[in-house]
Amino acid sequence: MDVSSIAKLSTSIAETGQRQEVNLAVLKKAQQIQASTATQLLDALPSVQGANLPPHLGNKINTTA
């Protein structure tokens, strides 16, 4: 194996590692943004407590439909 080919291989491996680190950082940031957006959407939902529904609603599930 030639010294220059070893240097090229080493450089290629280092560049690949850096690209993977950057891709991972971008992925983590995208996940943080999605989590933040999901939290905002959930917080925007109206409260069910203030709906003044009858107390019997939601106590039974019709399984014979």
Results as ranks from 00 to 15, higher is better:
1 M>P: 11
1 M>Q: 14
1 M>W: 12
2 D>N: 15
5 S>T: 07
6 I>R: 15
6 I>K: 14
7 A>G: 08
7 A>H: 12
8 K>M: 06
8 K>S: 11
8 K>P: 02
9 L>D: 10
9 L>M: 12
9 L>H: 12
10 S>W: 03
10 S>F: 03
11 T>E: 10
11 T>G: 12
11 T>L: 11
12 S>P: 01
12 S>D: 04
13 I>N: 10
13 I>E: 11
13 I>M: 08
14 A>L: 03
16 T>S: 14
16 T>G: 14
17 G>F: 06
17 G>Y: 07
17 G>S: 11
17 G>V: 04
18 Q>L: 11
18 Q>R: 14
18 Q>H: 14
18 Q>M: 10
19 R>L: 04
19 R>M: 03
19 R>H: 04
20 Q>V: 13
20 Q>T: 13
21 E>I: 05
22 V>W: 05
22 V>T: 05
22 V>L: 09
23 N>A: 15
23 N>F: 12
24 L>I: 06
24 L>V: 08
24 L>P: 13
25 A>D: 11
25 A>V: 02
26 V>W: 07
28 K>D: 06
28 K>A: 08
29 K>H: 10
30 A>Y: 04
30 A>N: 09
30 A>W: 04
31 Q>T: 00
32 Q>L: 05
32 Q>T: 03
33 I>Q: 10
34 Q>C: 06
36 S>H: 06
37 T>K: 15
38 A>Y: 06
39 T>D: 07
41 L>R: 07
41 L>E: 04
41 L>G: 02
42 L>C: 09
42 L>T: 06
42 L>D: 10
42 L>F: 08
43 D>A: 09
44 A>Y: 01
45 L>Q: 05
46 P>I: 00
48 V>M: 05
49 Q>P: 04
50 G>V: 00
50 G>C: 03
50 G>Y: 01
51 A>G: 04
53 L>N: 05
53 L>P: 02
53 L>Q: 06
54 P>K: 01
54 P>C: 01
55 P>S: 04
55 P>A: 03
56 H>T: 02
56 H>A: 06
56 H>K: 08
59 N>E: 05
59 N>S: 11
59 N>C: 06
60 K>V: 00
60 K>I: 00
61 I>H: 07
61 I>L: 09
62 N>E: 03
64 T>Y: 09
64 T>R: 15
64 T>P: 09
64 T>C: 07
65 A>N: 15
65 A>M: 12
65 A>L: 12
65 A>C: 11
65 A>W: 11
